[in-house]
Every structure is written in structure tokens, then in C-alpha cells.
Amino acid sequence: MILLRLKSLNKTFNHFCALTDIDFSVGEGEIVGLVGPNGAGKTTLFNLISGRYKPSSGNILFKDIDITHLKPHAICRLGISRTFQSSRPFPGMSVLQNVMVGHVFGKRSSLHSRPENKQAAKELLDIVGIAHKADAPAGRLTLSEQRRLDLARALATRPKLLLLDEVAAGFSPVLVKQAVELINRVRKRGVTLLIIDHFLNLSLKVSDRLLALDHGEKIAEGPPHVVMRNPEVLRAYLGLRHESERD
């Protein structure tokens, strides 16, 4: 069954085309990796799906509901949740409170009592591995801890579809391994995932499918090993490497 459907999605910023005619679908239970060089439009696509930006044209359907014009909070409550490329914790709240905010506001049906919410929030912190920091102010976490918090808070809204923006960027191999385990655990909870993974250190290990973008256009989609052999994808990535070697 198709969970998310993007229909010829366009996004321009002052005549600059950040995304051009994106058609794509994500099936329920899938893990899809979203890859592409810097500036390809990956984060922009997340901003469109989560309602932060409105597309210039095209439609976004979630569970066959047209969410193109909904506000971010409404989209979250329908069951789409996200993390941010650079984490955005609520710095003055404790780590536990950050997650509780997700519980309290993420779903309309979440009128649980405080203690129940707290218990559930603690479990999520345990899952992402920062339970020992529950009472620390979120502003004091390390970057990798902030990413985990972002993830726990997103999970607290009980999403059907979770959008992860560069969760594992800059992670050491050990941390990447933990992230892979974490993602598999999340999937077992019945969550569909769309994972932005510029450095390809995560998505090749967990994804069922890849979607490759370059300059705002879809250049390939399919099973990871096929997409990674696609000449256009290679060119996009190698071209990038060329440039970065020069400067």
C-alpha cells in the first residue's frame, strides 16, 4: 500500500529551481534512502512534505489525504514526523521534557496523564540511548546526543512516516552501527522511514530503495545497488568529489 505520494512537485526560491517535477511514492513499511550531493534539494523535499514550505506546484498525498496545503502541526498530527539536519532541541527544557512535548502535542488522541507520558518518554530515551541524560538541559547535549534527542522527540509523536535528515552524518563507524540497529528497531514499531543520507554511510545498509536527486531533479530510483551503479548518480557524486578536491 502506498503511504506517501509526491505528484510532480516543484519548488522555486526566487526563480531558482530547488526541486523540479518530482514524482515519487513510498510504500507502507519501506525504508527509502534519499541521496544526492550538497544542494540537491533533499532537505527542501523534507520541508515540503512536513509542511514547512509550500510547493510552487504539485501535490503531496499521505494515506490518500491531500496534505499539500496543511500546516506543519496538522501534518504532524496526521502521522508524519521529522528530524532536522542541524538539530533543534528546546534548549531550556530538560531532555525528558523535550520528548514529552512530542507526546503531548503530536497526536490529538494523546490525552494521557502526565505520569504515563513521562514513562513513555523515558522508554524512548532508552531506545535512542540517552536515558542517562534525561534531566540534563537539552541545550547542553553534544551534537550526537542532540540528534538522538531529535529522533526521540519525533518518535514521541507516534508517526506513521518518519523523515530523518542526515541522522548519521559525521558518525564514527561504531555510532553508525548503533544507528542501523536503532533504525531497524524503529521499523519494527511499524514506522515507514525516509532517510536523507548524503554520505551514504547509513542508507546502503538499511534502505529497501534509494531515491537520488541532483540539482533538484530525480536522477534515479530503485534498489540501492542498482542506483549506486547508475552513471548519472556516479557522475553527480564524482563531480562533487572533483570540485571539493579543487578547493
Binding site: 506543519p72 532541541p89 534548549p91 503530536g106
Partner: peptide
């Protein structure tokens, strides 16, 4: 709680379901 979230990080607040 909602007001604090909005004050501290509005973009995250709307993303976790708060009607900002």
C-alpha cells in the same frame, strides 16, 4: 509547555504538532 516550546524553537514546535 507549548508557549515555552514556541519561544525556544518555533520551527521544532510546529513540527511536533504545536499549533504555533
Amino acid at each position: 509547555l507549548a508557549l515555552q516550546a514556541i519561544r525556544e524553537e518555533e520551527i521544532a514546535a510546529e513540527a511536533v504538532g504545536i499549533h504555533v
